[in-house]
């Protein structure tokens, strides 16, 4: 699904990622662990080009999205991302937060079709064999209604239906993060990227967020999670990557990684966090 080839990220003189080559396959739940400053978050943020890679390629759906000439917005629609700081839109209600991207994207697609239809009509005036005019698809009202229904369905799934019309500032951290997750899901992404989703939460709220992610994992959603929750990584992930100093130094099933005693750095890291 996502393949990185010799991915390098440099900030000035400081090289954060030193050539990462790996692949995230369909239906895989990949947890990325490692000490702070090892480049885990940077690697994750490179996967959907929130950070532009200095060199190397990122192949998503057969397209190299690290190439600057690619329209990254089209590809990001298929990659959900969840941030450490939730980043819900403060000026929108919960429902508007979830509906915004699906509606905006569907409307801009519709405008594109309308533009094409206009030119087909214009050209048809001078054509003997008239070409069929493309169908506009759904009306704006239908688009909005569908997005709304989908948003409410997702809200019901996490049990926050009654919060649909409130602003994010009134929510707890756990609620915000669960809504941030379904906001990403509303776009029907092929892969979900989690950037330390529980690090900014109070301890008693970590559980509710993890259980939403766990449900997603059980539905076989492809996901990449940067996390400090070792227990969670062990339980949910189908594969664990250990990053150290800008490189992936261990890669395997949770059993292999957490039972690994050969890799010196990994062993000392695990002994500190477990």
């Amino acid at each position: 699904m996502i393949e990185t080839i010799d991915l390098v990220k440099r900030y000035g003189d400081h090289t954060v990622l030193k050539g990462i080559t790996t692949e995230i396959r369909d239906g895989e739940q990949v947890a990325i662990i490692g000490p702070s400053g090892s480049g885990k978050s940077t690697f994750l943020r490179c996967l959907n080009c929130m950070e532009d890679a200095t060199s190397g390629s990122i192949i998503f759906d057969g397209v190299d999205i690290a190439d600057m000439s690619v329209d990254i917005n089209l590809h990001r629609r298929h990659m959900g991302m969840v941030f450490q700081q939730f980043n819900l839109f403060n000026n929108k209600t919960v429902l508007q937060n979830i509906m915004l991207a699906p509606v905006t994207v569907a409307m801009s697609d519709r405008r594109k079709i309308r533009r094409e239809a206009f030119f087909v009509r214009l050209a048809n005036l001078f054509r003997r064999n008239k070409k069929p005019v493309p169908d506009y698809g759904k009306t704006p009202a239908q688009i909005k209604e569908e997005a709304r229904a989908n948003a409410l369905r997702l809200l019901a799934k996490i049990g926050l239906t009654e919060k649909a019309d409130v602003y994010p500032s009134t929510l707890s951290g756990g609620q915000k993060q669960r809504i941030a997750i379904i906001r990403a899901l509303a776009m029907n992404p092929k892969v979900m990227l989690f950037d330390e989703p529980t690090s900014a939460l109070d301890p008693e709220m970590v559980g509710e967020v993890l259980s939403v992610i766990r449900e997603l994992a059980e539905e076989n959603m492809t996901m990449v999670i940067v996390t400090h929750e070792m227990g969670f990584a062990r339980e949910v992930a189908s594969r664990v990557l250990f990053m150290d100093d800008g490189l992936i130094t261990a890669d395997g099933t949770p059993e292999e990684i957490f039972g690994n005693t050969e890799n010196e750095r990994l062993r000392s890291f695990l002994s500190k966090v477990l």
Binding site: N48, M50, R76, M79, N87, N90, L100, V105
Partner: peptide, 18 residues
């Protein structure tokens, strides 16, 4: 405005302008 707001919008596939 918190830069995270822009990041969240871009991560959803919205353009810079939108």
């Amino acid at each position: 405005v918190d830069p995270g707001q822009m990041e969240a919008g871009r991560a959803l596939g919205l353009s810079y302008g939108v």
